[in-house]
Simulated assay, not measured.
Amino acid sequence: MTTDRTQGPMDRLGFLLAWHGRITDAFIRRALGTTGLTPRHAMTLMHLDTGAMSQQSLIDRLEVDPSVLVAILNDLEGGDLVHRRRDPADRRRHIVEITPEGSVTISTLDTALTKVENELFADLSAQERATLQDLLNRVASVPRDYEC
């Protein structure tokens, strides 16, 4: 007797995504090991590489609690990779910008991440990679009816 419940875990998109996410995370962490940064540190630097922004903007982009961002920025500032300053237009606001050392680190990150991506996606064409990126960008981070 067969039922509709015969799907294996790799036939379920959520499990497949989680499985590949775990593997990808391990590859990225290993690649970042040469810099001493975590994925959150790297993502923060990559956002700042596009230009200075407020701490609130970083909180929104990274989707983290303000206390988590402060810890990330403390680490990055301790490594002279970012600099925080008060916004002259609003002294309650902090502006964060990448330092010259942070820009050098971005170059190292870019090389390491490109190598990881080339290994992970070697069997995909450029078009397939673009399609995968588009599809993943459209996946909801939290299902609409999900209750924690």
Rank of each mutant, 00 (worst) to 15 (best):
E77Q: 08
Q133I: 12
S57C: 07
S57F: 08
L69H: 12
G78C: 04
R93N: 07
E77D: 00
T3D: 14
T131L: 12
P88L: 09
S67E: 11
E63H: 13
C148Y: 11
A18N: 06
A126L: 06
T6I: 15
A130G: 01
R92C: 01
R29H: 05
E63Q: 14
D49W: 03
V64I: 13
A130R: 01
R138A: 13
I72C: 03
M43P: 00
N118E: 01
R138L: 11
D65P: 03
R91L: 13
G79M: 10
I95K: 05
C148H: 11
P39H: 02
T2Y: 13
R85Y: 03
M53E: 14
G36W: 10
R30I: 08
M10Y: 15
R84Q: 05
P9I: 14
D75N: 06
I95V: 14
D4K: 11
T35G: 06
V116D: 03
D145K: 12
F27T: 04
T131V: 14
Q56N: 07
T44Q: 04
A31W: 02
T38E: 11
V70R: 14
R92H: 10
I106W: 06
A18V: 02
A112K: 06
L62Q: 07
V142H: 09
P9V: 15
R92L: 02
D11L: 14
A89P: 00
L13M: 11
T34D: 07
Q7T: 15
R92A: 07
A112W: 06
L81Y: 07
H83L: 02
M53N: 05
Q133E: 13
G33F: 05
D60S: 12
R84T: 04
R138I: 00
A52P: 15
T44M: 07
D49G: 09
M1I: 11
D75W: 01
A71C: 01
M10D: 15
T105K: 14
H94R: 11
D4P: 09
A130D: 12
Q133C: 08
L32H: 01
R93Y: 04
A89N: 03
T108K: 08
H41L: 09
A71S: 11
M53G: 06
E97P: 05
V139Q: 08
E63F: 05
T111Y: 10
G102L: 07
T105W: 04
P88R: 06
L113C: 03
A112S: 10
G21S: 09
Q55H: 08
